[in-house]
Computed example of a mutant assay.
Amino acid sequence: MALLRSMRLATQQLDAWGIPYGSGPSDATTLVVAELAANAVLHGRVPGRDFALRLAYNSAKDLVRAEVTDTHNALPARAPRDAAGDGETGRGLVPVDAIAVRWGVNGRSGPGKTVWAYVPASREGG
């Protein structure tokens, strides 16, 4: 439920910023949000705690920054983990790496981490 809600909120916010629903940049950013949120739900979950999503749009650089913060200290996998060719999981952050201009992980005060990615807000890139 939280995953679908985060995707819906992301597409609504992007549209409010002038990045229309169904456009390439909107779909790309929503996919990155979905990947980051899914990783938080599947691997970053601590019982009784949820993840936080933050989006920021830098119109001067034409980039959207998507951040997902969770309360688990484990770092996300940067490389695939024995993913089946047609499987839906086990690819680490390869999809995020393919879409984002740049991504990374920051620690936070208290337990957990923030995984972030910059996604071009236009078809031309950022």
Rank of each mutant, 00 (worst) to 15 (best):
V94Y: 09
W103C: 00
T71C: 09
N106E: 11
A100H: 08
E67C: 04
A100C: 07
A84Q: 10
A98D: 14
S109T: 14
G107C: 00
D70R: 13
A100L: 04
E67T: 03
G85T: 06
A98P: 09
V94A: 14
A84L: 09
D82R: 14
A100T: 03
R81E: 09
H72S: 14
T71Q: 14
G85S: 06
A77Q: 14
A98M: 14
E67V: 01
A100I: 01
A100Q: 07
G92W: 04
L93R: 07
D70K: 12
R102C: 01
A79F: 08
N73E: 11
A100K: 08
L93Y: 06
E67D: 12
V101P: 02
G87Y: 06
N106P: 00
N73W: 09
A79K: 15
G92H: 06
A79Q: 15
A84M: 02
G104T: 03
R108P: 09
A77M: 12
P80I: 07
P95M: 10
D86N: 10
L75K: 13
P76D: 02
R108F: 04
R102P: 08
P76K: 05
G107P: 09
R81Q: 13
A100D: 06
V68L: 07
G90H: 08
P76L: 02
W103D: 00
T89H: 15
V105N: 08
G87S: 13
D70P: 14
L93A: 01
V105Q: 08
T89I: 13
V101W: 09
N106W: 00
D97L: 04
A84F: 04
W103L: 01
H72N: 15
S109A: 12
G87D: 11
A77Y: 11
V101K: 15
V101Q: 15
P95H: 10
R91S: 01
R81W: 11
P95K: 12
R78N: 05
T89S: 13
V101I: 12
T89Q: 14
D82F: 09
D97A: 12
W103Y: 14
V68D: 09
P95Y: 08
G92P: 00
G104H: 01
N73V: 05
R108N: 11
P95R: 12
R108L: 07
A74I: 15
R91T: 06
D70Q: 13
A98H: 13
P76G: 02
W103G: 00
R78M: 06
L75C: 00
E67G: 02
D82C: 03
V101G: 02
P76C: 03
R81C: 01
D82A: 07
P95G: 04
T69D: 02
R78A: 05
